[in-house]
């Protein structure tokens, strides 16, 4: 690899090894998980031989596939709604201070502060009380709530360090407010929005407790399905499904890259 001397990174010696260690730490368990998805044994932990059987089993397990599909639909919907609301809120909060700001800020992170199980039962009681039909929609509504702070905080952090003079300068140059937002603020904000959206997505994808309580008949998600296996023992089938989810994520990432390439 070419050493880029204009990059100040080389001056901070520890950084690169630390980042390498970070990615090794991150991917070591994933490697184990993928290897074991090819284990022929019914037990997840003892290697007896190579087999792709568990993929066949997983792909023919309609209940589990339906659960995985539900999880993806919920995570995408909740992420889109939460990130939009959080972006707007962050823009509104970023300018000069106002009375009651602390209260509003606390409200925006409230979903973080309450233990999941309490939120879950509370939301279910509430939905039943107001007569909401439980189903996928109710899960999406509940996920959106706890996704908002996960999207809001990175966007807000990004905005915090941004120079308001930039948008003002754009205004001075006779850009209208929408143009200033579209051409100046939004591109500058993009890394924050992307970070927030991705955090929302993975937090939604992993949620068990809230999905379990507010989901109606037919709205089982992948984590619920996997937790339900606890009593009977977890098989490499789950590893196979996890590996399939990884493939979907990689496809998803590749597509977004292609779109990026086309745009620029």
């Amino acid at each position: 690899m070419k050493i880029d001397t204009s990059n100040p990174l080389w001056r901070f010696r520890g950084i690169t090894p630390m980042a390498m260690f970070f990615f090794a730490y991150l991917y070591l368990p994933i490697l184990v998980l993928i290897v074991l998805s090819f284990n022929e044994n019914r037990l997840a932990t003892i290697w007896t031989g190579f087999s792709t059987d568990w993929y066949r089993v997983a792909l023919s397990n309609d209940d589990m596939l339906r659960a995985a599909k539900n999880s993806l639909v919920i995570a995408v919907s909740a992420t889109v709604i939460a990130t939009t609301a959080a972006t707007l809120a962050a823009l509104g909060m970023a300018r000069q201070r106002f009375r009651g700001e602390t209260g509003v800020a606390a409200m925006l992170v409230l979903p973080l502060l309450v233990p999941e199980i309490v939120t879950a039962i509370a939301t279910l009681l509430f939905f039943v009380a107001i007569g909401v039909q439980l189903g996928l929609i109710s899960v999406i509504a509940a996920h959106t709530v706890f996704c908002i702070p996960f999207a809001y905080l990175p966007i807000r952090a990004r905005l915090d360090g941004m120079d308001p003079a930039l948008a003002e300068a754009a205004n001075d140059l006779y850009a209208n407010e929408w143009q200033a937002f579209r051409r100046v603020t939004f591109p500058l904000l993009w890394p924050g929005i992307m970070s927030g959206a991705m955090l929302s997505f993975i937090i939604s994808l992993d949620d068990f407790v809230i999905s379990y309580f507010v989901g109606g008949a037919g709205a089982t998600t992948l984590p619920i399905y996997i937790f339900g296996m606890i009593r009977m023992g977890i098989t490499p089938e789950v590893n196979a499904v996890s590996a399939l989810m990884l493939i979907i994520s990689i496809v998803f990432v590749s597509i977004s890259f292609l779109i990026d390439r086309i745009r620029y």
Binding site: D63, L124, A129, A219, I224
Partner: peptide, 23 residues
């Protein structure tokens, strides 16, 4: 048949007690 799952008797109960139905 559509299968929905839970992880313990108690979580199943808590959900029904909170008013969930449809099973």
């Amino acid at each position: 048949v559509t299968l929905d799952v839970y992880d313990s008797n108690e979580t199943m109960l808590a959900k029904l007690q909170a008013g969930a139905s449809g099973y």
